[in-house]
């Protein structure tokens, strides 16, 4: 890690992202051979020349209408997909909550799934051992933790998934529109936890449409409009401007 970059958590530099749009995607060999060079490929440019620097300890919200490219940007930061051109660098352990409970195995118990899910985030067995009680307490599942996950209600499922993800202790946390977890009580608890993480100098990037909560939580907001950064600045200011145009 270079010294002058050490206070940056995420650096996005001249990033373009194009998606191939197939009208009929040739998936099989037959289709590939028959439609050789005949398939119409259109490119859809989702992100255009994005330049963002996020400092360590910042809590940043990405806002914008549906289809503006917020989630794509978040996926690029996670390294699930890669930019067409440009580069993205992240410094520090990164966890992303794009979808809760990805990788849960329905036949295994809640406790086993904690181990499995946390290991996807790159934790070792010892690290998970140390956190498992915190995770169970946070999820408020009590004795249900030792029953198979397929017997859970969707709320219980989400609570468990969120509890695992939030307790991973990453330095950078990327969250995609998942704050609407569980009942009011649990939502409040999630926000409290996020606030706590924010104070402990973690870097958080949130994609969300619940503007009121973002205003409270984030100190910076970036408004993405049709694949470009429209506005970047103090959360309340950007959100007010956004509401004026899109509200």
């Amino acid at each position: 890690m270079k010294k002058h970059e050490s206070n940056n958590a995420i650096v996005v530099k001249n990033v373009y992202k194009k998606f191939k749009l197939f009208y009929d995607k040739p998936n099989t060999l037959k289709e590939r051979l028959v439609f050789w060079n005949k398939t119409k490929v259109n490119y859809h440019e989702v992100l255009k020349d994005i330049n963002i620097e996020i400092k360590k300890g910042e809590t940043v919200a990405l806002i914008g209408v549906n289809g503006s490219g917020k989630s794509t940007l978040l996926k690029l930061m996670t390294k699930i997909i890669y930019p067409t051109t440009g580069e993205i660098k992240t410094y520090g352990k990164l966890t992303s909550l794009l979808e809760l409970g990805a990788g849960f195995h329905p036949d295994f118990t809640g406790r086993e799934n904690i181990y499995f899910n946390a290991s996807i985030f790159g934790l070792s067995a010892r690290e998970i051992d140390a956190r498992v009680q915190d995770i169970i307490d946070f999820s408020e599942l009590g004795e249900y933790i030792d029953t198979p996950v397929r017997t859970y209600s969707s709320g219980m499922y989400m609570r468990l998934a969120f509890s695992v993800a939030i307790n991973v202790d990453a330095e950078i946390l990327l969250i995609d529109e998942i704050l609407a977890v569980g009942d009011q009580h649990f939502q409040d608890k999630c926000f409290q936890k996020l606030d706590e993480l924010k104070k402990s100098d973690k870097t958080i990037v949130i994609v969300s449409h619940s503007l009121e909560s973002i205003k409270k939580l984030c100190n910076r907001a970036i408004w993405i409009y049709e694949g470009e950064v429209r506005m970047d600045g103090k959360a309340s200011k950007v959100i007010d401007e956004y509401l004026k145009v899109c509200g």
């Binding site: 036949d107 295994f108 499995f116 290991s119 790159g122 067995a125």
Partner: peptide, 22 residues
């Protein structure tokens, strides 16, 4: 190596999970 726990739980899921319920 950092993700060794994932490897471990994946292997055990592969071995145990496949026939779970039978």
């Amino acid at each position: 190596y950092n993700y060794r726990q994932l490897l471990k739980s994946n292997v055990s899921k592969e071995i145990r999970g496949k026939y779970k319920g039978s």
